[in-house]
Simulated assay, not measured.
Amino acid sequence: MSTFHPLRVTAVDRLTDDAVALTLAVPDELRPLYRYEPGQHIALRRSRTAGDAHAATTEVRRTYSLCDPAPPADGDAPATLRIGIRGVEGGDFSGYALKELAAGDSVDVLPPAGRFVLQPRPGRFAAVVGGSGITPVLSIASTLLAREPEARFCLLRSDRSTASTMFLEEVADLKDRYPGRFHLVTALSREETQSGLPTGRLDEKRLTGLLPSLLSVPDIDGWYLCGPLGLVEGAAGALRGLGVPRARIHQEIFHVTEAPRAETAGSRSPDADVRAATVTATLDGRSGHWPMDDGESVLETVLRHRSDAPFACKGGVCGTCRVRLVSGEVRMDRNYALEPEELTAGYVLACQSHPVTPAVEVDFDG
């Protein structure tokens, strides 16, 4: 089972007024553990005490995508990890990273995880990203182009303004390095430009008309959508309307704010939650069987007995708490992390799952 390890901060580079790139050193003995695929993310943890010295200490966890434009060679273990962090209003961790973290500090970090990845191979690929959604795609595109000479990549990125654009120089470097294989299109929602797309948001209607004018949509072997929920859902809707098969569309959501929407893993209604349910969980090869308190999620019940249960965002976005549903049925409040094929294979998010049968069994190791 993955556990947190303290990694030393070696650099905090200012990208924009509200974003930084954080570089973390990986000790020699931990390098194999932190080997990653381009597009994956890491979870960071800090302890925070509210109020005076006698107040309770709470734990804050957040996930951030690895964004090194020059990741280690295939199979090599990394000496450093680099992530991009954009400030979120009221954000406990992003505010800490932007205002307090400095070189020499230590941060607790989980090993890399995530399935928003692209194994380098010949073909044509494209991405639609918004804001900090560039972070995993920067690593994906740079690795693909460096390792596969027969690959091409088109990046359509949306930002508020040039000043708010993360990794501006790194993306420009890709354009200069691979002029015949990397195509960059920029859309700004709050700034007029002399070239590029007209100012405005990239919604489903606009993308439906725009994408076929930029590239041959049927010839794209994989689409990578990353950013705010509205952009990703709009892009996915546009692609489906243009006849792109679901298997070619890969997406990752950043920062969901709206109310949850219920999804049921099984046949029962969301109103059929069971109050006196029990959960059996296998974690790191050991199993436990516990009663659930009213309103608890599967993850909350497990954490009361096993503090080492993996989680990060608790918002149905990162997928860190993915488990295999062995038996029983659950209702998920929201799911922005699991692909349809994962749901079909029996996986659910423990942080969003509530029982709709008297007994539920999950496997964190499955």
Rank of each mutant, 00 (worst) to 15 (best):
P6K: 08
R8L: 01
T16P: 13
D17C: 04
D18T: 07
V20Q: 11
V20L: 14
A21N: 02
A21D: 01
L22D: 01
T23H: 05
A25D: 14
A25Q: 15
P27N: 13
L30R: 15
Y36V: 01
P38Y: 00
Q40K: 04
A43M: 04
R48Y: 07
R48K: 09
H54W: 10
A56M: 09
E59Y: 02
R61G: 07
Y64A: 07
C67G: 08
C67M: 07
A70C: 04
P72T: 00
A79M: 10
R82E: 03
V88Q: 15
S94Y: 08
A97E: 06
G104I: 10
D105F: 09
S106P: 01
P112K: 14
P112C: 12
R115D: 15
F116D: 00
L118Q: 01
P122I: 02
F125T: 02
A127G: 00
A127S: 03
I140Q: 06
A141K: 02
T143M: 01
L144K: 10
E150K: 08
A151F: 02
S158H: 03
T162M: 05
M166N: 13
F167S: 10
A172W: 05
A172M: 09
D173T: 15
D173C: 08
R181C: 00
H183Y: 11
S195Y: 05
P198Y: 01
T199I: 03
R201E: 05
L202E: 11
E204W: 12
L215Q: 06
V217L: 12
Y224N: 03
L225W: 08
V232S: 04
E233L: 14
A235T: 03
G237F: 13
G243K: 06
R248I: 07
F254R: 02
A265R: 14
A265S: 11
G266Q: 03
R268H: 06
A272W: 01
V274E: 12
V274Q: 07
L283Q: 00
G285H: 03
R286W: 01
H289V: 09
W290L: 07
E296L: 01
S297V: 05
S297R: 09
V298I: 15
V298P: 07
E300L: 10
L303E: 11
S307D: 06
C318T: 04
C321A: 13
R322S: 06
V323M: 03
V326Q: 11
S327C: 06
S327G: 13
G328I: 12
R334V: 12
R334N: 10
T344K: 15
G346H: 12
A350T: 08
C351F: 08
S353H: 11
S353Q: 09
P355M: 08
T357S: 02
V362R: 11
V362N: 11
V362T: 11
